[in-house]
Simulated scan of single mutants.
Amino acid sequence: MPALDLERHPGHLARRFRQAHTLLWNTVVSEEVTSPQFAVLNTLVGEGGLDQRTVGDRVGLDRSTVAEVVRRLAGRGLVDKVRDPGDGRRSVLRATDEGVRVHTRLAARTARMNHILLAPLEEAERAVFLDLLRRVSDAAEGLRHPTAPPAAAVGA
């Protein structure tokens, strides 16, 4: 059997894209705050008072990963976890003042990183590329949730 053309395999290309994103994130945005940590912080800056599960769903992180991300952000004083005043059994998250400051600083750097990452594409191509990435990612995340439609029905 001849070797496969990996340039036609989405998983291979996704891994290469992820490597490029990680390299740019670490050099342009932050070596201290990871991309998933920023996503959680960004969500909480936009809408505090969410529970951990909701935050995880919003940013596409599973329960154990979002728990670790929140633990690290809280340990750095960027996120607070407090009892929900409406339901004492539940905790909600909010960005601290320091978390908001860090978010503000990193948001500008993230915009610069995205500009660099998407520079090979023309403006119209960027919109199409982001739409396609979002659609494929949404369909893939649907595979994790048993209530989601089967993968074959996603594109139907």
Rank of each mutant, 00 (worst) to 15 (best):
residue 30 S to V: 03
residue 156 A to V: 13
residue 142 G to V: 05
residue 145 H to Y: 12
residue 68 E to C: 02
residue 22 T to K: 09
residue 135 R to L: 07
residue 48 G to Y: 03
residue 139 A to Y: 04
residue 17 F to N: 08
residue 49 G to K: 10
residue 146 P to C: 09
residue 139 A to H: 04
residue 83 R to N: 11
residue 72 R to M: 00
residue 79 V to I: 02
residue 6 L to G: 08
residue 110 T to W: 14
residue 31 E to D: 08
residue 20 A to K: 07
residue 17 F to W: 12
residue 140 A to D: 09
residue 32 E to T: 09
residue 51 D to K: 07
residue 107 A to N: 14
residue 96 T to M: 12
residue 3 A to M: 13
residue 153 A to F: 09
residue 44 L to N: 01
residue 92 V to E: 02
residue 21 H to Y: 11
residue 113 M to N: 10
residue 117 L to T: 02
residue 65 T to G: 02
residue 137 S to T: 12
residue 31 E to R: 13
residue 53 R to G: 08
residue 107 A to T: 15
residue 34 T to N: 05
residue 88 G to R: 08
residue 39 A to Y: 06
residue 117 L to I: 11
residue 105 R to N: 15
residue 152 A to Y: 09
residue 74 A to Q: 00
residue 131 D to Q: 10
residue 128 V to T: 08
residue 93 L to Y: 01
residue 16 R to Y: 08
residue 90 R to W: 04
residue 3 A to F: 11
residue 81 K to A: 02
residue 101 R to K: 15
residue 85 P to I: 03
residue 64 S to C: 01
residue 100 V to A: 11
residue 35 S to V: 08
residue 13 L to D: 08
residue 115 H to Q: 15
residue 121 L to N: 05
residue 121 L to Y: 13
residue 9 H to Q: 11
residue 24 L to C: 05
residue 17 F to D: 11
residue 10 P to W: 12
